[in-house]
Simulated assay, not measured.
Amino acid sequence: MPQTPEADENNDLDLTPSPKPAHYAEQALLGALLLEPARLDDTEPLIAPHFDSHTHAALFTAIRTLPPPDPADHARDTAWLNAVLDQARPHAPGLNASYLHTLVQFCPQPKHAAAYARMIRADNTRRVLRAHAERLASTATDPGLPNPAASTLGLVDDIGRVLDFLAEQFAPHPGSLPRTALPAQVTPETGEEDLDEERLLLATATAYPAEVQQMRWLTEADFLLPLHAALWQSIAALVHRGDMVDPVTVLGEAQHRGLLTDSLTPKDLMELVSTPAGSPEYWGEKILQRALLACAQIVAARIAAYTNDLANTPHQLITGSRRALAEINSVRARWHRATAPIPAPAGRPSARPAPVPRAASPPHRPSPSVARTHR
């Protein structure tokens, strides 16, 4: 088993009970380079940030910085090894000569340096994608962001660029789809404010059905409550058929769709769609933004699951992550359609200036019987 240098308890080379394969690859590579410094050419394009261990990265930087020794001189004395130690120690205070000796002993085959370097780069790919997934999940759940959709989609673009870069570094191979069991989809917490937004959409859509015709970007999957999704479909169906829309006609459509139950009476349903505030598009955008952020959380969880599965190769990580991003990109397309300014005739301003909100009215909370009964 590899040993660690004699250092304080905070030294990052202290072994955990089960070190990852990359830990041993880092030790083997450094041992190979200490034995045969000329093998450094075999490690391209490996760089210090690819190492998981800070101390290993400091050693690798020292090896790359110092001119390689004459092979004959290197075989006779330890002058170059001492120079590497002196170069690295200011950046890794716990490093000592004993650990360099351990690395040399641990290397199985110096001629396999290129293979060790590939293992290190593969593990770095895993860590980089995991970090991006964690940041995406954190941003999508941050309530303090002024523009959460833009911030979240910016991180989605970052992940896409990282995947494009990584795809150029690792060649594809057969069987490139990850076999990782995906985490169970967590049902988002349903707050009263979120449900109020859905109720207000239904009421304003009933009051202003003309706007519903332009809201094909909103789907039933965006709603938290299945009843609200079904009622949205009922209203949209009336609008798209060109039928008259009011609380009574919505009640009739809901009846034909089998939405009326003992817990949802005709009176309850009509109350639900009879108190408008603001505009349908305003509430629809809020619902779609919530769905976008929820999708981002799912994507982040899937990418994290792929990176946590050590069986996945870099190309499998790339392929699986791209498939995950495809899901949020479909929601993104609908978000862009929802928020894009409406083109206006020449000489007139846009019908929908982007910075101006479409509803200034505060949410109206329906009566308790409507608010709590139909979940």
Rank of each mutant, 00 (worst) to 15 (best):
H228E: 08
T141A: 15
A346T: 08
T102R: 00
L145A: 11
A210H: 03
A277P: 01
V273Q: 12
T275C: 14
M119C: 14
P368N: 10
R372Q: 13
N96D: 15
P143A: 02
Q185S: 13
P178E: 01
V273N: 09
T319M: 12
N11L: 04
P71L: 09
L200Y: 09
F60T: 04
A92Y: 04
R290C: 06
R290L: 07
N82P: 10
N308P: 12
H54L: 10
L272A: 09
G191E: 04
A25I: 00
Y116L: 05
T125C: 02
Y24V: 11
L81S: 07
M1H: 13
R302H: 09
L81Y: 00
D246L: 03
D8V: 04
S234A: 13
D41M: 06
P362Q: 02
T55I: 03
G347I: 01
P276T: 05
P276H: 02
V128R: 09
F165C: 11
Y24C: 10
H91K: 10
R358L: 11
V273G: 05
Q213C: 00
P146K: 15
F106I: 03
A79P: 00
V248P: 01
H112T: 14
I159W: 13
P37E: 06
E327R: 12
R89W: 01
I120F: 08
P17A: 12
P37Y: 05
P5G: 14
L34Q: 03
A72L: 15
P280N: 10
A371L: 14
P314E: 04
T16G: 00
R121A: 08
F60R: 01
A48H: 07
A140K: 12
P276R: 04
R322D: 07
R179Q: 12
A371C: 10
E327F: 10
Q289E: 13
H54F: 06
M1L: 09
H112M: 15
R352M: 09
A291L: 01
L177S: 09
K286Y: 12
H228A: 01
S138D: 13
A300M: 07
L227M: 06
R365F: 11
A236H: 14
D194G: 13
G94W: 07
P5H: 11
F170C: 07
S263W: 15
T125A: 05
A181G: 00
T78V: 11
Y24E: 13
W217Y: 07
R302T: 10
I303M: 04
A97V: 02
T313Y: 08
A346R: 08
A62K: 05
E9D: 14
D194N: 13
A122L: 01
I328W: 06
P188F: 02
R76A: 03
G320T: 07
L59R: 06
D158W: 11
T339R: 08
L269K: 08
M244P: 02
T313D: 01
D73W: 14
L81I: 11
I159A: 12
A203C: 02
Y306I: 10
N329P: 00
L66E: 09
S361L: 15
A340W: 06
A133C: 02
V273F: 14
R64Q: 06
D142F: 03
P345M: 00
V331G: 04
A237L: 02
Q255V: 01
D52C: 11
N308K: 15
N10F: 15
L238K: 10
S274G: 12
A58Y: 13
P266T: 10
L251M: 00
V370N: 05
M1I: 14
